[in-house]
């Protein structure tokens, strides 16, 4: 009988290096697996926006580059004028996708499970913003990018979805699996100067 494949994080080989961060005012950590749904709908389509919000126990953000919190640990990130990324606990993904499909029946929409495509990293601490600024051209000053802000941009030339979830600051970086090891390695190198001698 064939062995069952065991899902492994692309960051598994960096586990020790990640665990050693934190003494230097900036911590890099791999997030546990999570559910991610790409949601497309027309906000002008009467009721679709509200129906999707109700199914998620939240509100779909319409302001560019923002995210909102929904019920049960889910969050909704603005990706475009008719596109959102809906993130939540890994074991809840299929149920949420079903609830969205049911709520949006009859409207022009798409709910796509993209959970297996991405890895999420958390970068936190007093030096986190300075580390990001080494490879990201966005204005990350608190007056321009604060908790609740999210952006699809490039970090060290890798496409990332950057989401600030705390004022410390704490950032979540959602990156394609194939870029995750590269990006984490780049971040570890960028953090090296803050490491106590």
């Amino acid at each position: 009988m064939a062995e069952q494949p065991v899902p492994q994080s692309p960051l598994a080989s960096l586990a020790d290096a990640l665990a050693a961060t934190g003494a230097d005012g900036v911590t890099l950590a791999a997030c546990p697996a999570r559910a991610r749904l790409n949601l497309r709908l027309d906000p002008e389509d009467g009721g679709a926006l509200e129906a999707a919000g109700a199914a998620l126990g939240g509100t779909l953000p319409l302001a560019p580059n923002t995210a909102t919190a929904a019920a049960d640990g889910w969050s909704i990130l603005w990706l475009g004028p008719n596109e959102w990324l809906v993130c939540g606990p890994a074991d809840d993904g299929a149920a949420r996708a079903g609830a969205l499909e049911a709520a949006l029946a009859g409207t022009h929409h798409a709910v796509t499970d993209v959970g297996a495509m991405y890895t999420t990293l958390t970068l936190a601490g007093a030096n986190a913003r300075t580390v990001l600024m080494k490879g990201c051209r966005l204005d990350l000053h608190p007056r321009a990018f604060a908790p609740g802000a999210c952006a699809q941009t490039a970090l060290a030339r890798a496409q990332v979805i950057l989401h600030q979830i705390g004022a410390e600051p704490v950032y979540e970086l959602t990156v394609r699996n194939s870029f995750a090891h590269y990006l984490a390695s780049w971040l570890l190198d960028a953090m090296a100067e803050y490491r106590p001698a």
């Binding site: 560019p64 004028p81 051209r137 952006a151 699809q152 941009t153 490039a154």
Partner: peptide
């Protein structure tokens, strides 16, 4: 038009 000002390298 959607995301606001971004550097050329994102395009």
């Amino acid at each position: 038009p959607w995301c606001g000002p971004r550097p050329e390298t994102e395009y």
